[in-house]
Design a protein around this nucleic acid. Structure first.
Length: 152
DNA sequence: GCCAACGTTGGC
DNA sequence: GCCAACGTTGGC
């Protein structure tokens, strides 16, 4: 069992949007960063646990928990010239970009804010709080996962 | 809206 | 392969 953190701008796709989807699942399209892609493509497995993080909003922080429900497959939005995430480098017979599906588990009882996470010595190594880190998907250690959850 | 910290692109 | 210019992310 592995743990992850995935960022989303709530204006684009929020934890409530995930909760309200049919089957409460959604594909995680639009990742166009190789490091993040590699984690999705090579490492994320069904039932891995995910912190759902809201970025670029009033109170950035962890707002809920999701889980991986489908392992990586080609991100079809890269094939569509009309899609915002279109990438001519990627073709159906040789895809460059991949995605996973995630399912809603629950919302946290409160937002665990970035500000709060930064205050905790125990999370000094969490990729999220490291200077300059802009990865939209990052690993979370079992210890970090447990520590963050007990903050709730 | 600002801007730091990246990642990507492309000329050479 | 170097690196300047440019684009993006995302906190503030």
């Amino acid at each position: 069992m592995q743990y992850w953190l995935m960022k989303s701008e709530p204006e684009a796709f929020s934890i409530d949007d995930l909760r309200d989807r049919p089957q409460q699942t959604e594909h995680w399209d639009g990742v166009r960063n190789y490091q993040a892609r590699n984690m999705m493509r090579d490492q994320m497995k069904v039932d891995d646990q995910v912190f759902f993080y809201h970025s670029n909003c009033e109170e950035p922080g962890i707002v809920g928990i999701a889980r991986v429900v489908r392992e990586s497959y080609p991100d079809f939005t890269a094939f569509d010239p009309d899609d915002k995430h279109f990438d001519p480098k990627s073709h159906p017979d040789k895809p460059v970009w991949f995605m996973v599906d995630i399912g809603f588990v629950r919302k946290l009882s409160r937002t665990i804010s970035l500000r709060e996470l930064k205050l905790r010595d125990e999370l000094a190594d969490l990729a999220l709080v490291r200077r300059g880190n802009r990865l939209s998907i990052m690993p979370v250690s079992p210890q970090q996962w447990a520590f963050i959850l007990q903050l709730e």
